[in-house]
Design a protein around this nucleic acid. Structure first.
Lengths: 238, 238
DNA sequence: TGCCGACGGATTCTGTAGAATCTGGTTGCC
DNA sequence: GGCAACCAGATTCTACAGAATCCGTCGGCA
C-alpha cells in the first residue's frame, strides 16, 4: 500500500523538521520524489490533515502546519488533560518491575555529573517514550491511548522544531530536569499515590510546554495559516 | 468541492444511523449514488477514517465503525477529561447574559409537568448543544474546542444509535435528568464555582455515558470489526 | 448415491496511473 | 489602475492492474 508508506515518510519528515512549517506541499513534486502517481499522494495528504500535521486549503493544496506559541500551549493543555487521565487510570495497574527499571534508569541519569553525551540523549528520549507509553497502555483505555499517541506526535513535531531552531543551546539542562520530573511521577506511581502522580504529570507536561515553546513566535508574529498562504507561495521547497 | 460534500453527507448518514455499524461502504456504489467518480469517494472515506467514524481495511475498503459498550466508555472517559478541562478554562469567562438565558430555559424544562413533546425534545437538544458549545468556545483554547467537537460527533453517533435501537422507551425521563445536570453546571458557572462546575460536568458526562451505552453490546458480543467484514458482505446498502 | 472439502475460473472491488477539467493567481497589455 | 489571457496546480474523471471474494465443479469418502 503506497499511500501508507507516503503518509509515514511525510509524517517523519514533518516531525523531523525536514519539511518546514508553512511549506507548500505540491502533489506533482511529491509524486516525482516518491516515484508514484499523484493520486496516492493526494490521499496521503488527506490522511495527514486528519492527523493534524498539515492544513488542507480548498483548491490550493496542503501546507505544513505552523505552530505559534499559543497553539503549542493549547495542544499542551489538551495533552495534559489526557495524560493526567491516563495516569489516573494507570495508577496501581502498572507492572512493578517495569517501574523499577524506569526508576533506576532515571536515577542513573540524574546522578550523572558529566554533561549528557549524544547517546545519552537518545537514552533519555527512550526513557521518556517508554514512561509515557507504559502509562497510556496501562490505563485500560485503548481509545485514550490512541488520542495521546496522536498528540505525542504533534508535540514531538514542535519539540524537534525548537531543538533545531536553537542548536541545543542548553538542552542538557532540560534533559536533567525532565528526568527529575519523570522520576517524581514514577515514584508516586510506585507508592500508588494517585493524586501525587497526577500532579507530577501535570507539572511535567506544563514545564515541557514552557520550555519547548519559548522560542516559538507568538501568534501575533505568525498569524494563523489560513489567510497567509500567498506569502509562502512560490518559495517552493528549495 | 465534491469530496467535502461527500464527507458531510456520509457523516450525517452514519451519525444519523442510516448507515449501520459494520456496513461495508463500496466505492463504486457510493460513486453512482453521489453521481461522481470513485476518486473523491475514496478520498472522502480516508477523511472519514481520520474523523474516526469508519475503519479502513487495506484492499478491502471501509466499514462503518461498530461501537461496543467498552469503546463508548473509553470515548466518554476522554470526553469527560476534555469537557472538564474546558469548564475549568471557561469558568468566569462566559457571558453572564448567555448563562442567564440557558438557566431560564433549563428551569422551564424542569418545571414542566407534562411529558416532553417532540418539539420540546428538539429544544432540549438545542440547549444541550448550546451549553457545551458556549463552554468550549469560552475556554480560550480553539484546539481543545476542535477536539471536543470531534468527540461530540462520535458521541452523537452512538446516542442516536441507542435512541433508534429502543424507540425512545423512557427517553423523556432521561431528558429531564439531563436538564437537571445541565442546570447544576450552569448554576456553578454563575457562582464562579470552578470546582463545582467541573464536578457537575464530570457527573453529567458519565451519567450520559451510562445511559446511552446501556443497550449496546459488550465487546464480547460484538468483537472488533476487523474479522467480521465477511459477515455483512453482500447485504448491500438498501 | 449423497455429502464434504479442495480447486479454479469468474466476478467484484480496491488501488494506481494518466488525462482532462476547473480554479485561482499572475503577468503583461491597454 | 483595470482587464484579459495565461499558467501552475488542484480536483476530478476514465481506464486498467492486482487483490479478494464468490461460485460452480470435481474428486474423495462414507
Amino acid at each position: 500500500m503506497r499511500r501508507k508508506a507516503v503518509v509515514e515518510d511525510l509524517c517523519c519528515e514533518i516531525v523531523g523538521g525536514r519539511l518546514r512549517p508553512g511549506e507548500h506541499l505540491v502533489t506533482r513534486a511529491l509524486a516525482d520524489r516518491f516515484g508514484v502517481s499523484h493520486t496516492p499522494i493526494r490521499e496521503a495528504l488527506i490522511a495527514l490533515a486528519g492527523i493534524g500535521v498539515v492544513d488542507l486549503l480548498p483548491n490550493r493544496g496542503a501546507v505544513v502546519r505552523r505552530f505559534s506559541r499559543d497553539e503549542v500551549r493549547e495542544i499542551c493543555q489538551v495533552r495534559r488533560a489526557l495524560e493526567c487521565e491516563a495516569v489516573r487510570g494507570a495508577c496501581g495497574r502498572i507492572d512493578e518491575a517495569e517501574l523499577l527499571v524506569l526508576r533506576e534508569a532515571l536515577r542513573g541519569m540524574i546522578a550523572r555529573t558529566t554533561p549528557f553525551a549524544s547517546d545519552q540523549v537518545a537514552e533519555a528520549r527512550a526513557a521518556d517514550s517508554r514512561l509515557h507509553d507504559v502509562i497510556s497502555e496501562s490505563a485500560a483505555n485503548p481509545f485514550l491511548a490512541k488520542e495521546i499517541g496522536r498528540l505525542k506526535m504533534l508535540f514531538r513535531a514542535f519539540r524537534d522544531a525548537s531543538w533545531q531552531r536553537e542548536e541545543n543551546r542548553n538542552d542538557y539542562h532540560r534533559l536533567g530536569e525532565e528526568a527529575r520530573e519523570h522520576l517524581t511521577i514514577v515514584e508516586a506511581l510506585m507508592r500508588n499515590d494517585r493524586a501525587g502522580a497526577v500532579r507530577a504529570m501535570s507539572r511535567h507536561i506544563m514545564s515541557g510546554c514552557r520550555y519547548w515553546s519559548r522560542t516559538l513566535p507568538t501568534s501575533a508574529e505568525a498569524p494563523a495559516v489560513g489567510g497567509q498562504v500567498a506569502r509562502v507561495k512560490g518559495k517552493g521547497k528549495s
